[in-house]
Amino acid sequence: MKNILCYGDSLTWGYSAEGPGRHAYADRWPSVLAAELGSGALVIAEGLNGRTTAHDDHLADCDRNGARVLPTILQTHAPLDLVIIMLGANDMKPFICGRAIGAKQGMQRLADIVRGHAYPHDARAPKLLIVSPPPLTPTEDADFDAMFDGGVAESRKLAKLYAEVAEEKGCGFFDAGSIARTTPLDGVHLDAENTRAIGRALAPVVRKVLEL
């Protein structure tokens, strides 16, 4: 049995702009990935709305800094064979970071944490798969448009920058924007079909990484 941690934000949690609400469990990409992989893998969904790569959100009601929380999550779910990280959309908020380069640096920090964490019982560090989230989409939702001001253009840079991080760190990379699109309802989140598409597309990538 291979243990896989999916570490992300609202795209991993399953936020639905319709409503708004949360997608059905079966529609969330970690659930779809688990179904595709079958009994040979345990997929752990660790998504939190608003989570960033490594930046503070002082308006949040809980800790959204992905770098600060990740060591605890790694310890909680150890031993792990693979960590999949899909973060960066919330870094595009100008009052948090607002620049793709800041998300790249945050992702570098997360990769270093995964590689360098003191895992219990001398367990080896898991393999790492970095996933760039689908770019933001222009929206007529005034609140989201203002919240992510300038984020559409910056988010389009993430795939290239994250691929550079993956090459630097010697880990896997997947561009979720190659198969999924964010909804214009709010410009940030995914409808059910697009989140399912990410789970389906990641399955062969994960099989290759873990030799399943």
Rank of each mutant, 00 (worst) to 15 (best):
G50H: 03
R109L: 13
R124V: 12
A142I: 12
Q75F: 11
A24C: 03
R109K: 15
V114C: 15
D122L: 09
T137Q: 06
L161N: 11
L42F: 03
A123N: 12
Y7L: 11
G151L: 02
A34N: 11
V205C: 07
K93Q: 15
Y25L: 00
T195Y: 09
K93T: 05
L11Y: 05
V43S: 00
A203H: 07
H55E: 03
L136K: 11
P79K: 08
A123Y: 10
L185W: 00
D27H: 08
L136R: 09
T183Q: 01
V131F: 13
P133F: 08
I113V: 12
T183M: 03
Y119T: 00
G170W: 11
V69H: 01
A159V: 04
A41Q: 05
Q75V: 07
A166Y: 09
A41T: 00
F95C: 02
N49V: 15
Q75S: 11
T72C: 06
A41K: 04
T12E: 03
R200P: 02
L161H: 15
Y7D: 11
K160H: 15
A103R: 10
V152W: 03
L210S: 14
R196F: 00
S132G: 08
A166Q: 13
R181Q: 14
V83Q: 03
L212N: 07
T52E: 06
L42Q: 09
P20K: 13
Y119K: 00
A125K: 08
T139G: 04
A197W: 01
C62P: 01
H189S: 04
T195V: 12
V43D: 00
A34P: 12
A123S: 10
L202C: 07
K104P: 02
G150M: 13
Q75C: 06
I198V: 03
A17G: 03
L210Q: 13
G187C: 02
P30S: 09
A89N: 01
I179H: 00
